[in-house]
């Protein structure tokens, strides 16, 4: 628990020092490195098409990484909902009640869960649309950041100069 808190504290303290918004600090091979860090909630502006294993490395080798798609369609995302938090609280309370034979707590949390589930059935707005323009702005800002960033080779990966963009494979270290 203490180590967890220390880790959290160090992560928050060094967040600017270790910022790698470009998203690819370790010259990664697969698609999770092919978007910004932190990524937008929809991960990719358009669904990437994959033609090989290690798709991102293949893109980088062909110089096709960090492309701007021709068009940015609207993206439909799940709308925010309190259900996750409610179930987390009632689930924990119910498990606690069952462990310690606190039946009033078990019944109470079961009832709250049931009411929440029924109420959820009445919700009709379960999705939210992110306009294509917003997606475009977000993506172009990231691409601009990629352009402005100086690539680093493997020898400097662990230094502060690493802002998340490795040098292309042909010039870099042995892959």
């Amino acid at each position: 628990m203490l180590c967890l808190l220390i880790q959290l504290w160090v992560s928050v303290r060094d967040r600017h020092h270790n910022d790698v918004f470009v998203g690819d600090p370790w010259d990664g091979r697969s698609l999770e490195w092919a978007t910004s860090s932190p990524p937008p909630e929809y991960n990719f502006p358009v669904i990437p098409e994959v033609f090989s294993r290690d798709a991102f490395m293949a893109e980088k080798e062909q110089g096709k990484a960090y492309q701007v798609p021709d068009e940015f369609p609207d993206i439909e995302m799940p709308a925010n909902s309190a259900m996750g938090v409610i179930i987390a609280v009632t689930g924990t309370a119910m498990a606690f009640g069952l462990t310690w034979y606190m039946w009033w707590l078990v019944i109470l949390s079961a009832m709250v869960t049931l009411v929440a589930i029924i109420a959820r059935g009445y919700v009709r707005k379960t999705t939210r649309t992110i306009p294509g323009d917003e997606v475009r702005r977000t993506h172009l800002a990231w691409i601009e950041c990629v352009r402005r960033t100086t690539p680093v080779d493997r020898s400097k990966e662990q230094t502060r100069e690493n802002r998340g963009l490795p040098v292309p494979p042909v010039e870099g270290a042995v892959q």
Binding site: I47, D74, E76
Partner: peptide, 13 residues
């Protein structure tokens, strides 16, 4: 429902 075109992620066809 809005009238804008929606493309569901993963539904290309």
């Amino acid at each position: 429902m809005t009238t804008t075109t929606k493309i569901h992620p993963g539904h290309t066809d």
